[in-house]
Amino acid sequence: MDSEHAALLALVRAGGAIGPRKRLLERCGSAEAALSAPSATWRECGFETRLPAPARAADAGDAAWLECEGNHLVGWLHPDYPPLLREIPSPPLALFVSGEPARLWHPAIAIVGSRGPSAGGLRHARDFASTLASAGVSVASGLATGIDTAAHEAALTAGGLTLAVLGAGHGQPYPPSQAPLQARIAGTGVVVSEYPPDTPPRRSQFPARNRILAGLALGTLVVEAGLKSGALITAKQAAASGREVFALPGSIDNPLSRGCHQLIRDGAQLVESPDEILIALPPLATGLGMALERRLAHSEGLERTVKPLVPEPDSPDGDPHGLWQALGHDPTDMDELVSRTGLTAASLSSMLLVMELQGRVSVEHGRYSRKR
């Protein structure tokens, strides 16, 4: 583990309000510089005292977790910190990520609901998740039992991308029976937590988890929820972050429909089919597409200009990466596109997303083609 990661972990484990630690990072430019900053700088950022020297040592458990393949620590100053998450009222200082961090940039819809849903609620969660995943949208949820599990599993079955946000550390699946599903998601999707890997589940952490789930998604769909459901907390945090809230109506005799009906009365968009969400998605994703273009330009070492990074094939810039030609009209998977273009999967994912948002590319079951 490098010294910057060790310093960032020390700041994460220091606890307390996120604001002062974020200001300290921005003021100093790195976690390592922050730890060595004078006491006056700490006080100016909102601390009473500097972090004591013993608390600056890296935790052995954190180090061991980071050394495992596929595990990452993405801090506030990291260029891959998800742009949508920066916009919420209280963004986390850092994210512990299992899977490729770039997947956190993929346009996502959060699907949430009751831990004890009806049979109809489970069917709706699966249907919406499957359709969204097949259309190339990431399905995000909280890895709880019930609606969350149905959404994650349906996205995996559809061969799509799914994102799980934890209310505890990666090494503390909750409930423990979710450990196999967590491992499956980490293998093909991404699992994220703001808590160090050994953090046990605590009641107060789950509402905090919900703000990250809402913040990573362009919108939140509530399938079934009682009036005091945690899903309503997620929906309210989504609305507070300026995101769209969707809700499924249900029978007036079903107590699990009352939360959805309340959301609709409060201004949530009533939806009856996944297509209604897909139609609403492109305007919501405009800002994300622009952020992806900027990040791609940075990662490819390209000049930042006003011309698009993925130009139209008949523009004066032609097809500089050869991606349009590589796509053709037949569905092509990512491995084949990597082989045809010589680009990395991470770069291709960003470029394909921009083209998808431009309405030029279709994606189905993880395979891409020119849009007819």
Rank of each mutant, 00 (worst) to 15 (best):
H170E: 06
D319F: 00
L278R: 01
A34G: 08
A158N: 02
A133M: 05
F206S: 01
A125H: 11
P20M: 10
C260E: 06
T162K: 06
T341E: 01
S193F: 01
Q269I: 12
G289D: 05
E87L: 12
P83Q: 14
H261F: 09
D319Y: 01
Q182T: 09
T145H: 11
G366Q: 02
E87P: 07
G215P: 06
I212F: 05
S177I: 09
A53C: 03
E194A: 08
A158H: 08
F128Q: 06
R370T: 02
G46Q: 00
G15A: 07
A151S: 14
V354F: 03
A291E: 11
L163H: 11
P83L: 09
L77W: 12
E224S: 11
L296F: 13
T145S: 15
E26Y: 02
A214C: 05
A94S: 04
W324Q: 00
T131S: 14
F128C: 05
A140F: 04
E272G: 15
S134R: 11
V223M: 12
G75W: 04
K371P: 00
C28W: 09
L104V: 02
E224C: 11
L337G: 03
W105H: 14
P173F: 04
A268F: 07
A7N: 00
A291I: 03
H170A: 02
M1I: 12
G226N: 10
A40P: 04
A235G: 12
L248H: 10
G215D: 12
S369K: 13
N210H: 06
E224Q: 14
Q262E: 12
L281Y: 09
G120L: 10
L296V: 09
V190A: 13
L77E: 14
L104E: 02
G142H: 04
G301V: 00
V361P: 01
S315V: 04
R115G: 09
H124K: 15
E300M: 15
A119I: 08
T157A: 14
R103V: 02
S130M: 12
Q172T: 07
L122V: 13
V190H: 02
R203Y: 04
